[in-house]
Amino acid sequence: MLPLFTRSIKFLVGAAFIFVLLLALVGTVTTLIKEPTPPSAEEEFHKHAKELDLPSNGPLGKFDLAQLQRGFLVYEKVCASCHSLNLVSFRNLQDLGYSEPEVKKIAKDWPMKQPVQDPKAGTWGERDNLASDRFPKVYYPGTGSPPDLSLITKARHDGAAYVYSLLTGYADQTGYKNAKGEELLKKFPTAKTPEGSHFNPYFANLNIAMPPPLTSENQVTYSDGTRATVDQMAKDVSAFLVWTAEPTMQTRHRAGVAVVLFLLFATGLAYGAYLTVWRGVKH
Protein backbone atom coordinates (compact mmCIF):
# COMPACT_ATOMS: atom_id res chain seq x y z
CA MET A 1 0.00 0.00 0.00
CA LEU A 2 2.77 2.42 0.92
CA PRO A 3 4.74 2.00 -2.37
CA LEU A 4 1.55 2.70 -4.32
CA PHE A 5 0.93 5.85 -2.27
CA THR A 6 4.56 6.94 -2.81
CA ARG A 7 4.26 6.45 -6.56
CA SER A 8 1.03 8.47 -6.61
CA ILE A 9 2.72 11.35 -4.75
CA LYS A 10 5.62 11.30 -7.22
CA PHE A 11 3.19 11.37 -10.13
CA LEU A 12 1.27 14.31 -8.66
CA VAL A 13 4.46 16.28 -7.96
CA GLY A 14 5.70 15.67 -11.50
CA ALA A 15 2.35 16.64 -13.00
CA ALA A 16 2.26 19.82 -10.90
CA PHE A 17 5.78 20.72 -12.00
CA ILE A 18 4.88 20.25 -15.67
CA PHE A 19 1.69 22.30 -15.17
CA VAL A 20 3.67 25.18 -13.66
CA LEU A 21 6.13 25.08 -16.57
CA LEU A 22 3.27 25.17 -19.08
CA LEU A 23 1.71 28.14 -17.27
CA ALA A 24 5.04 29.99 -17.36
CA LEU A 25 5.46 29.22 -21.05
CA VAL A 26 1.96 30.37 -21.94
CA GLY A 27 2.41 33.51 -19.87
CA THR A 28 5.71 34.34 -21.55
CA VAL A 29 4.33 33.81 -25.05
CA THR A 30 1.22 35.86 -24.26
CA THR A 31 3.34 38.71 -22.92
CA LEU A 32 5.57 38.69 -25.99
CA ILE A 33 2.52 38.82 -28.27
CA LYS A 34 0.77 41.61 -26.36
CA GLU A 35 3.90 43.57 -25.41
CA PRO A 36 6.72 42.66 -27.84
CA THR A 37 10.23 43.64 -26.84
CA PRO A 38 11.01 46.96 -28.51
CA PRO A 39 13.90 46.78 -30.98
CA SER A 40 17.26 48.15 -29.96
CA ALA A 41 19.05 50.83 -31.94
CA GLU A 42 21.28 48.18 -33.51
CA GLU A 43 18.32 46.05 -34.58
CA GLU A 44 16.20 48.89 -35.94
CA PHE A 45 18.81 50.96 -37.72
CA HIS A 46 21.29 48.34 -38.84
CA LYS A 47 21.15 47.93 -42.63
CA HIS A 48 21.75 44.83 -44.71
CA ALA A 49 24.51 44.98 -47.30
CA LYS A 50 23.77 46.66 -50.60
CA GLU A 51 23.61 44.68 -53.80
CA LEU A 52 27.01 44.44 -55.49
CA ASP A 53 27.32 43.10 -59.02
CA LEU A 54 30.85 41.81 -59.62
CA PRO A 55 32.12 39.71 -62.56
CA SER A 56 33.17 37.06 -60.03
CA ASN A 57 29.62 36.58 -58.72
CA GLY A 58 27.80 33.32 -59.35
CA PRO A 59 28.93 29.79 -60.18
CA LEU A 60 30.30 30.87 -63.57
CA GLY A 61 31.89 34.10 -62.34
CA LYS A 62 35.39 35.10 -63.35
CA PHE A 63 37.78 37.85 -62.37
CA ASP A 64 38.13 41.12 -64.26
CA LEU A 65 41.91 41.63 -64.12
CA ALA A 66 41.66 45.34 -64.91
CA GLN A 67 39.29 45.80 -61.96
CA LEU A 68 41.53 43.74 -59.69
CA GLN A 69 44.51 45.92 -60.57
CA ARG A 70 42.47 49.03 -59.77
CA GLY A 71 41.39 47.43 -56.50
CA PHE A 72 44.99 46.65 -55.60
CA LEU A 73 45.89 50.29 -56.24
CA VAL A 74 43.14 51.41 -53.84
CA TYR A 75 44.42 48.95 -51.23
CA GLU A 76 48.01 50.11 -51.74
CA LYS A 77 47.29 53.85 -51.58
CA VAL A 78 44.44 53.93 -49.05
CA CYS A 79 44.12 50.72 -47.00
CA ALA A 80 47.65 49.37 -46.63
CA SER A 81 48.77 51.93 -44.06
CA CYS A 82 46.37 50.36 -41.52
CA HIS A 83 45.37 46.90 -42.75
CA SER A 84 47.63 43.94 -43.43
CA LEU A 85 47.34 41.43 -46.24
CA ASN A 86 49.57 38.86 -44.63
CA LEU A 87 48.29 35.72 -46.36
CA VAL A 88 49.16 37.05 -49.82
CA SER A 89 52.66 37.12 -51.35
CA PHE A 90 53.89 39.89 -53.60
CA ARG A 91 54.56 37.37 -56.36
CA ASN A 92 50.85 36.46 -56.37
CA LEU A 93 50.28 39.83 -58.06
CA GLN A 94 51.55 38.26 -61.29
CA ASP A 95 48.17 36.50 -61.43
CA LEU A 96 46.62 39.96 -61.85
CA GLY A 97 48.69 40.69 -64.93
CA TYR A 98 51.72 42.39 -63.37
CA SER A 99 55.08 41.43 -64.86
CA GLU A 100 57.89 40.00 -62.74
CA PRO A 101 59.91 43.26 -62.78
CA GLU A 102 56.78 45.21 -61.78
CA VAL A 103 56.16 42.86 -58.86
CA LYS A 104 59.77 43.18 -57.68
CA LYS A 105 59.50 46.97 -57.79
CA ILE A 106 56.20 46.94 -55.90
CA ALA A 107 57.78 44.74 -53.22
CA LYS A 108 60.91 46.86 -52.91
CA ASP A 109 59.01 50.17 -52.76
CA TRP A 110 56.44 48.92 -50.24
CA PRO A 111 56.52 51.28 -47.21
CA MET A 112 56.45 48.48 -44.61
CA LYS A 113 59.62 46.41 -44.65
CA GLN A 114 60.39 42.88 -43.51
CA PRO A 115 61.65 42.59 -39.91
CA VAL A 116 64.96 40.75 -39.56
CA GLN A 117 67.01 39.86 -36.52
CA ASP A 118 70.78 40.08 -36.20
CA PRO A 119 71.66 36.73 -34.55
CA LYS A 120 74.92 38.09 -33.16
CA ALA A 121 73.70 41.36 -31.70
CA GLY A 122 70.22 40.06 -30.91
CA THR A 123 68.65 43.23 -32.29
CA TRP A 124 65.94 43.69 -34.89
CA GLY A 125 66.24 45.58 -38.14
CA GLU A 126 64.51 45.80 -41.51
CA ARG A 127 65.15 44.79 -45.10
CA ASP A 128 63.42 45.43 -48.39
CA ASN A 129 60.63 43.08 -49.36
CA LEU A 130 61.25 40.38 -51.94
CA ALA A 131 58.72 39.10 -54.44
CA SER A 132 58.59 35.84 -52.46
CA ASP A 133 57.66 37.66 -49.22
CA ARG A 134 54.14 38.07 -47.97
CA PHE A 135 52.77 41.55 -47.49
CA PRO A 136 54.21 42.66 -44.14
CA LYS A 137 51.98 42.99 -41.11
CA VAL A 138 50.93 46.40 -39.84
CA TYR A 139 51.43 46.88 -36.09
CA TYR A 140 50.14 49.59 -33.79
CA PRO A 141 52.18 49.42 -30.56
CA GLY A 142 49.97 49.32 -27.50
CA THR A 143 46.67 49.25 -29.42
CA GLY A 144 46.94 46.07 -31.46
CA SER A 145 46.33 45.89 -35.19
CA PRO A 146 43.27 46.50 -37.36
CA PRO A 147 41.84 43.37 -39.02
CA ASP A 148 43.93 41.64 -41.67
CA LEU A 149 42.07 41.87 -44.98
CA SER A 150 43.35 38.68 -46.62
CA LEU A 151 40.16 36.71 -45.89
CA ILE A 152 37.78 39.52 -45.00
CA THR A 153 35.26 38.67 -47.74
CA LYS A 154 35.13 35.09 -46.43
CA ALA A 155 34.99 36.10 -42.78
CA ARG A 156 32.05 38.51 -43.10
CA HIS A 157 28.48 37.71 -44.01
CA ASP A 158 27.67 39.01 -47.52
CA GLY A 159 31.41 39.11 -48.29
CA ALA A 160 32.32 41.71 -50.90
CA ALA A 161 28.90 43.36 -50.61
CA TYR A 162 29.57 43.97 -46.91
CA VAL A 163 32.96 45.57 -47.62
CA TYR A 164 31.45 47.76 -50.35
CA SER A 165 28.52 48.79 -48.15
CA LEU A 166 30.77 49.58 -45.20
CA LEU A 167 33.08 51.76 -47.31
CA THR A 168 30.20 53.72 -48.82
CA GLY A 169 27.85 53.64 -45.82
CA TYR A 170 29.25 56.29 -43.49
CA ALA A 171 26.51 58.76 -42.56
CA ASP A 172 25.83 61.80 -40.41
CA GLN A 173 24.06 60.50 -37.34
CA THR A 174 22.35 63.84 -36.75
CA GLY A 175 18.97 63.64 -38.44
CA TYR A 176 19.49 60.03 -39.52
CA LYS A 177 16.09 58.39 -39.96
CA ASN A 178 14.80 54.87 -40.32
CA ALA A 179 12.25 53.70 -42.87
CA LYS A 180 9.42 55.03 -40.67
CA GLY A 181 10.93 58.49 -40.65
CA GLU A 182 11.92 58.33 -36.99
CA GLU A 183 15.17 60.02 -36.05
CA LEU A 184 17.74 57.78 -34.36
CA LEU A 185 18.84 60.20 -31.65
CA LYS A 186 15.30 61.21 -30.74
CA LYS A 187 14.14 57.64 -30.34
CA PHE A 188 17.38 56.33 -28.80
CA PRO A 189 19.14 59.25 -27.07
CA THR A 190 21.72 56.91 -25.52
CA ALA A 191 22.73 55.58 -28.96
CA LYS A 192 24.75 58.67 -29.76
CA THR A 193 28.03 57.80 -31.45
CA PRO A 194 30.82 58.22 -28.90
CA GLU A 195 33.72 60.53 -29.52
CA GLY A 196 36.41 58.88 -31.63
CA SER A 197 33.92 56.64 -33.43
CA HIS A 198 32.01 57.07 -36.67
CA PHE A 199 28.39 56.24 -37.45
CA ASN A 200 27.90 53.52 -40.05
CA PRO A 201 24.57 51.63 -40.25
CA TYR A 202 26.24 48.70 -42.03
CA PHE A 203 28.54 48.01 -39.08
CA ALA A 204 27.30 45.60 -36.41
CA ASN A 205 26.91 48.10 -33.54
CA LEU A 206 26.51 51.19 -35.76
CA ASN A 207 29.75 52.77 -34.51
CA ILE A 208 33.15 52.05 -36.01
CA ALA A 209 36.57 53.36 -34.98
CA MET A 210 37.85 53.55 -38.56
CA PRO A 211 37.22 56.95 -40.14
CA PRO A 212 35.88 56.98 -43.72
CA PRO A 213 38.84 55.80 -45.84
CA LEU A 214 37.36 56.84 -49.19
CA THR A 215 36.44 60.49 -48.91
CA SER A 216 36.75 62.14 -52.30
CA GLU A 217 36.87 61.52 -56.03
CA ASN A 218 40.30 60.90 -57.60
CA GLN A 219 41.77 59.84 -54.26
CA VAL A 220 43.77 57.48 -56.45
CA THR A 221 44.61 57.81 -60.14
CA TYR A 222 43.66 54.89 -62.36
CA SER A 223 46.05 54.28 -65.23
CA ASP A 224 43.28 52.87 -67.46
CA GLY A 225 41.34 56.13 -67.39
CA THR A 226 38.48 54.86 -65.22
CA ARG A 227 36.87 57.65 -63.20
CA ALA A 228 37.90 57.12 -59.58
CA THR A 229 34.68 57.96 -57.78
CA VAL A 230 34.16 56.84 -54.19
CA ASP A 231 31.64 54.26 -55.40
CA GLN A 232 34.01 52.92 -58.08
CA MET A 233 36.97 52.70 -55.70
CA ALA A 234 34.82 50.83 -53.16
CA LYS A 235 33.69 48.35 -55.83
CA ASP A 236 37.22 47.80 -57.10
CA VAL A 237 38.83 47.18 -53.72
CA SER A 238 35.95 44.85 -52.79
CA ALA A 239 36.58 42.85 -55.98
CA PHE A 240 40.30 42.75 -55.15
CA LEU A 241 39.57 41.38 -51.67
CA VAL A 242 37.43 38.64 -53.21
CA TRP A 243 40.55 37.59 -55.10
CA THR A 244 42.80 37.70 -52.02
CA ALA A 245 40.34 35.47 -50.15
CA GLU A 246 40.11 32.90 -52.94
CA PRO A 247 42.63 33.46 -55.76
CA THR A 248 41.86 30.05 -57.29
CA MET A 249 38.11 30.70 -57.55
CA GLN A 250 38.17 31.03 -61.33
CA THR A 251 40.02 27.70 -61.68
CA ARG A 252 37.55 26.07 -59.31
CA HIS A 253 34.64 27.33 -61.39
CA ARG A 254 36.17 25.97 -64.59
CA ALA A 255 36.82 22.60 -62.93
CA GLY A 256 33.23 22.49 -61.68
CA VAL A 257 31.84 23.14 -65.15
CA ALA A 258 34.11 20.44 -66.62
CA VAL A 259 32.97 17.91 -63.99
CA VAL A 260 29.28 18.66 -64.62
CA LEU A 261 29.74 18.30 -68.40
CA PHE A 262 31.62 15.01 -67.90
CA LEU A 263 28.88 13.65 -65.65
CA LEU A 264 26.22 14.57 -68.21
CA PHE A 265 28.24 12.90 -70.98
CA ALA A 266 28.83 9.79 -68.85
CA THR A 267 25.13 9.62 -68.00
CA GLY A 268 24.29 9.74 -71.71
CA LEU A 269 26.74 6.91 -72.43
CA ALA A 270 25.37 4.82 -69.59
CA TYR A 271 21.81 5.29 -70.80
CA GLY A 272 22.82 4.38 -74.37
CA ALA A 273 24.55 1.24 -73.09
CA TYR A 274 21.45 0.34 -71.12
CA LEU A 275 19.25 0.61 -74.21
CA THR A 276 21.69 -1.47 -76.27
CA VAL A 277 22.05 -4.29 -73.73
CA TRP A 278 18.36 -4.61 -72.94
CA ARG A 279 16.97 -3.86 -76.41
CA GLY A 280 15.99 -7.48 -77.23
CA VAL A 281 14.87 -8.45 -73.75
CA LYS A 282 11.12 -8.58 -73.17
CA HIS A 283 9.78 -7.48 -69.82
Rank of each mutant, 00 (worst) to 15 (best):
L2A: 10
G14Y: 06
G14T: 07
G14K: 04
V20I: 06
T28S: 02
T31R: 02
L32S: 07
P39G: 00
E42I: 01
E42P: 01
F45S: 05
H46E: 07
S56C: 15
G58T: 02
G58P: 13
P59A: 01
A66W: 09
L73A: 10
V78G: 09
S81L: 10
C82W: 04
S84G: 15
L85E: 02
Q94A: 03
Q94E: 13
L96M: 08
L96E: 03
Y98A: 12
E102N: 00
P111K: 07
K113Y: 02
W124D: 12
D128N: 07
A131L: 05
P136G: 00
K137Q: 10
D148C: 02
L149G: 03
I152T: 12
D158V: 13
G169W: 00
G169S: 10
G175V: 13
N178C: 08
N178Y: 03
K180L: 14
G181I: 15
L185S: 03
A191K: 04
E195A: 13
S197P: 00
A204Y: 03
L206H: 00
I208V: 15
T226E: 13
R227A: 15
R227F: 08
V230Y: 05
R254E: 15
F262W: 14
F265W: 03
L269W: 10
W278V: 03
K282H: 05
H283V: 12
